[in-house]
Design a protein around this nucleic acid. Structure first.
Lengths: 183, 183
DNA sequence: AAGGAATGTGCGTTATAACGTACATTGCGC
DNA sequence: GCGCAATGTACGTTATAACGCACATTCCTT
């Protein structure tokens, strides 16, 4: 994560610069010592959420803004770990779960005669499928849905669900799993 | 703020209970000592964002969930982005923006010699690209990145950015745009 | 140049986040 | 009843977040 933490300082300095505030002035308004503000901006210490809240409030900036990943996160296809499931399902993580964004995303390849069953996720979890190539079937809400390339489907995943491919051609899909914001 | 901080412990305990995890198990998975987890749940200490991140990550819960007042689930969905349909760019919406989920997703096809420039989005907006077919280039952080099929990239979109395809074969990509929750 | 005010950083101290271990309590099988 | 494992809490220690103050540097103004 720590790339993420180090970004807080830069975000903060940027916002402060936008307002043209000095460390001292910012310290007065936020109620945080200017020494601490300086250290945070330089990445020399990681604030508690309590002080981060004070800072965000003082700068009148949404707190989540500080937590957004900064800089570009590029992942090359060749460098991606692949996970071969016993059942003929090849899973490649595209974007790892990030607590700020609230989702993770996989590329999945279903070989011929593959069946993958999933236990229900936690309440509020929503899955999104986009079929890239081939055909497949999705079991959800008690029935099988036939999907082919180009189709996109969103369904609540807090219930039993399954994927299968009964065709000779492998099916390639994207699977985005979104975890709930509040419960 | 402190009403907000005290809510962190309750949120946390709730998530942990949902998964049926003990403090010890949660400590192992999150990489945070169970003593600390207990103190946080009881509101006896306010975690640093670093440890809060570990906890959120381990529980697979959006970090913002801990920070938002309990019971509030709605964000303003102002700032739905506009697409300039540049010539040679074909945009197909896959998932429309949903204020609960906080993102939208498009399939984009870039024909030969297509250049699409985007103005900066609002602060905190994060874009995710996955290249499905062909090759393309992404301009971000002041430089061009060459991408080819299978590559996945995440970048902050609150800055000028652009896509282009200078190859004869069309490039197909998925574009996921995530909007921050505002505090 | 020289003085003064404002800036950001360094230092020593205090408060507390975080850890590891030991303890009390509960629940379950025999 | 008696172990016995698992749970969450209390304690002592270490690491570090946060503070206040002093210092060096830059930027004005004279």
């Amino acid at each position: 994560m720590d790339a993420n933490v180090s970004a807080i300082g830069r975000h903060m300095k940027k916002r402060r610069a936008e307002r043209g505030w000095s460390l001292s002035r910012t310290a007065d308004i936020c109620g945080v010592s200017k020494a601490m503000l300086g250290q945070i901006e330089r990445g020399e210490s990681t604030p508690t959420i309590s002080t981060l809240w004070k800072i965000a409030s003082g700068l009148q900036v949404p707190l989540s803004q500080f937590l957004v990943p900064e800089g570009l996160a590029l992942q090359r296809m060749e460098a991606m770990p692949r996970h071969h499931d016993a059942s003929g399902m090849i899973v490649t993580p595209l974007f790892a779960f990030d607590p700020v964004l609230g989702f993770e995303m996989f590329a999945i390849e279903l070989l011929q005669d593959t069946l993958s069953e999933s236990a229900p996720h936690a309440a509020g979890v929503v899955e999104h499928l986009v079929v890239l190539e081939g055909r497949m079937e999705l079991f959800v809400d008690g029935g099988w849905q036939a999907l082919s390339a180009g189709d996109a489907v969103r369904f609540p995943a807090d219930q039993p669900h399954a994927y299968r491919n009964r065709n000779p051609e492998p099916a390639k899909i994207h699977d985005l799993i979104h975890y709930p914001f509040s419960g």
